[in-house]
Each structure stands twice: as C-alpha cells, then as structure tokens.
Design a protein around this nucleic acid. Structure first.
Lengths: 143, 143
DNA sequence: TATTGACTGTTAGATATCTAACAGTTATAA
DNA sequence: TTATAACTGTTAGATATCTAACAGTCAATA
C-alpha cells in the first residue's frame, strides 16, 4: 500500500489555505465595492507612487500577466480610483497613480487585511509565527 | 512611520505561493490535456470510488461551489473521463465514477504532482518540512 | 541611419469560478 | 397526508485570469 507516498499534503494545504484566504479577504472589503486583489493593487501603487510604477511592475509583483493588469486597471480607472499617464520619457509605458477616491479607502483596506491576517495566525504562538514566516519566505524565494 | 504594522506578509506569501504552485501544477500535467484541478478531482474520485462520492462531497473537499463542480464534471463527463449516475436511493444526488480513460492517467498525475511537491519543499530540511506541515494543518483547521 | 529584435501594453477569445434564481427530491411536522 | 423546509444539482450571467496575436515604441547594430 503505497498510499502515503502518493499524497501531496503541501500542495493540497497551500491550495486550500490560499483559496480560503482569498475568500476571506474578498469578503472583508466587499462593502467597499472592490475585491481583495483590487485593494492590494491600489495599496501597492499608493505606497510606491514616488517610484512611478508602470503596469509591468504590477504584473511582476502580483504574478499576473500583462493582459490581466490591463483589464484590472481599466476597471479601476473607469471607476475613478486610478489614473494612467504615458510618461514623456517612454511612450511604451504607462505610469499609474492613485486618485483621492482610492486614497480615502486605503486605511480601511489595511485594517481589513490586517484583521484577516490576524485570524490566520492567531492559533500560532509567537515563535511559530516567526518560524512559519521564515519557511514561507524560503519557499517563495525558491519557486 | 507605521509602515511595518500595516504589512500582511502571511496573507501575501500564501497568495503568491498559492498562485505559483497552481501554475506549476497546471504546467506539470498540461500534456495530458487536463489542468491540475481536474487531475486532483479525478484522483480524489478514484480513491473514494467505493464511497460513492456525490457532487456535494467534491464541493466540500475542494472548497468550490456546487455550480463550479457541475461545470467541471460536465466537461470531464463529456470528455469521457467520468460518469455520473443517479443512485436509486436518492434522486437528488449523482454518484461520480472514474472511467478507464481517466484511470490510465492517474499514475501520471501522481508522479507530476509529487514532483511539484518535491520542488516546493526541497529547500527545507527534514525537520523544517515536519514543522511546516504541522503549522499549515493547524492554520487550515482554524480558518 | 535603417532594420531588426526586445519591450510594453491591448484586444479577442477561452476557461474557471462565482452568485442568484430555479427545479426537482426528500424529510419534517401540522 | 399534505404543506413546507432543507437538500442537491443546474442554469444564466458576471468577473477574473489566461494565451496568442498584435501595435507601437525603443535600443542595438550592421
């Protein structure tokens, strides 16, 4: 019975936990009229506003395709949360800036995401949290 | 500067690792003409064939909505990988069975998923692997 | 300096998942 | 025993992401 050899507990756990977290995070900011991905992206653009982020940067940071970023930003721009400006230095690119309507929400995003984060790890001791973070970072760096 | 207080490293790491793993797993069985989710579902049905799995069970196990399971199984049935039979005991339900065309592939799925699993955790020591598994299980049980 | 390859972003079309509304079946209880 | 509630699965329509093909711009080089 080679049953146990064939299991993939890490793959399965990462998949299931990831799915659950996505649902929680979406739920936590649903009332703001956005989903978690949109919130995270707005947050990231805001934090890096002085670096004149381009869409490529977002694709890299969030591990999404360029086409997906285009689609996400078209919606956020249409709703008045961000603006996209072609920089004088390079007409291929678009710099992304967060508009006031979005800036108002950023504290709420932060609170909500932080609450979800706390819910995840509240069952761990302080030491376990540190170990987990270290292991996750290690894995993330090598895949 | 409250910068660090506002970060959500666990949320972010789980999201990114989950996304990367999904892509790897999909890639690993792409040549078989299915995606990782379909493979995992076939595997699960096969393992539990004697328990006469119904769609509801799959929705629970994979944390997907009933509607999503319907859609996934319609495709798998149409391609000849599974069959769905209404049991005599309860006409609301459908029991799911794996057909020979799918059974042939299960060893390949297992090998592929196992390879991805190994790639994830190869950077960890044996002790770290055990700790990580324990922490993931603990988190999964409480969210 | 003209060509070509690399880069950045967009579009079209595909797939996966979701929610809400629904249909039929089974269980409960008046 | 009939009416109602709970259960299981389906459909329709929405959203998110993907790949492939493409358009325009920039950089390298012949």
């Amino acid at each position: 019975m080679m049953q146990s050899r064939k299991d993939t507990p890490y793959l399965d756990l990462f998949q299931i936990i990831g799915l659950k977290l996505k649902k929680r995070a979406d739920e936590s900011i649903k009332e703001l009229g956005l989903n978690a991905q949109q919130g995270k992206i707005i947050e990231y653009i805001y934090k890096n506003q002085d670096k004149h982020i381009i869409q490529k940067n977002l694709a890299d940071r969030f591990h999404l395709r360029g086409a997906s970023i285009t689609s996400i930003l078209q919606v956020l721009e249409q709703k008045g949360y961000v603006e996209r400006k072609i920089p004088a230095t390079n007409e291929r690119q678009k710099n992304i800036y967060v508009l006031p309507k979005a800036i108002e929400l950023i504290d709420d995003f932060n609170d909500s995401f932080h609450k979800v984060e706390d819910e995840i790890i509240q069952v761990l001791t302080e030491e376990e949290k540190q170990i987990l973070k270290k292991l996750l970072i290690k894995i993330n760096e090598h895949i």
